[in-house]
Design a protein around this nucleic acid. Sequence first.
DNA 1: ATTAATGCTTACTAATTAGTAAGTAAGTTA
DNA 2: TAACTTACTTACTAATTAGTAAGCATTAAT
Lengths: 196, 196
Amino acid sequence: MSTPSAIKLPPDTRTRILDLAEGLLLERGFNAFSYQHLAKELGVKPAAIHYHYPSKDDLGTAIVARQLRRLRKWRDLPRVADLPPKEQFDALLAVYENHLGHDRRVCLFGALAADFRTLPAPMQAELRTFNRELTEWLAQVLAVGRATGALRYVGSPAAKAAQVLTTLSGALQVARVHDETPFQVVVGQLRLELLS
Amino acid sequence: MSTPSAIKLPPDTRTRILDLAEGLLLERGFNAFSYQHLAKELGVKPAAIHYHYPSKDDLGTAIVARQLRRLRKWRDLPRVADLPPKEQFDALLAVYENHLGHDRRVCLFGALAADFRTLPAPMQAELRTFNRELTEWLAQVLAVGRATGALRYVGSPAAKAAQVLTTLSGALQVARVHDETPFQVVVGQLRLELLS
DNA sequence: ATTAATGCTTACTAATTAGTAAGTAAGTTA
DNA sequence: TAACTTACTTACTAATTAGTAAGCATTAAT
């Protein structure tokens, strides 16, 4: 019982770097932070960052890879996987609302899409996988949701899933440019249409 | 008749800078090009860019300001303003499809939202105005469209307009990360819902 | 004809960037 | 205890960045 799985250890430098970089990525964009920024904030020297993540490409890729691991873990969590479709959809909305409440962070996809062509290839690949798996998950939720009468929409589940995720990603971006209101408006519209 | 309004003059350096910078902004993001890149591509020295746009902030602001002028001009064009709502909506979709066909450029909003907090204040202000005016225009189109029976949706015109624009911006981003297919899928879903 | 504005170039600064190499102190293992 | 590994720091490079200042043709105005 020396290291029970539920106990949170104080994060080591490696993790602290990743946490900070992820935060900056989602708050200011990938090209908007440097190893110097990270080092200063963490109270270490830039070379310490290079020790853990030799290049910025490695760091960026690690951020996306971790988010992908988190997505899979979240999706397969009993308290998510065993929910009925409507509640699964609400759980998804809660994730985006949580981003909003966390200093109006955009989602990973929204943070990287614009600069996509400047990203290292492994990062691009991870982001594609992330988006594909999330879309497939939501499509499945929407399919079951319509079959059970809990959710209402026209078109294919895959098309609706792509539209919804696209909308949510955009909604967080609008919230950044203006304020939280348009996000709430757009999400309200989404719920109105799906749950009517 | 020496300079009829319909004749396109060969663009001067000032305009060529703006065109190139705008293209790079929409294709690779605001932090992904430098005065050196611009200068090399245009066959001038970096200082020539500074002569026309003293700082990158000025250049960025000029890009957004021009897009705002274009939006207003387009919106007020007889061949747009005098159209019935359904055709106005199609005209809007055509703009986004044009972006897609132009090397999968994202829209101005989608290009700047993620990095928004790193942008100079005047640029932020112009982008807010751009988004507000576009949303207001679409809300009006949707309001008339529903009143005349040409367009169908639930909720307020303002909410639906915000949702649609958010979706279109996101759809261009998805097209960049994957390919044109998801854009077509999402736009197809939008049309299916609005024109059913 | 002279002056002045326009549109650059040349030459430079100072800051910042990612990244490397070598060294070091503390802990871990053999 | 000796060798090795981990997690750094110090000190550096080479490239790139935005930006400035001064000079120089060419054109336009007086």
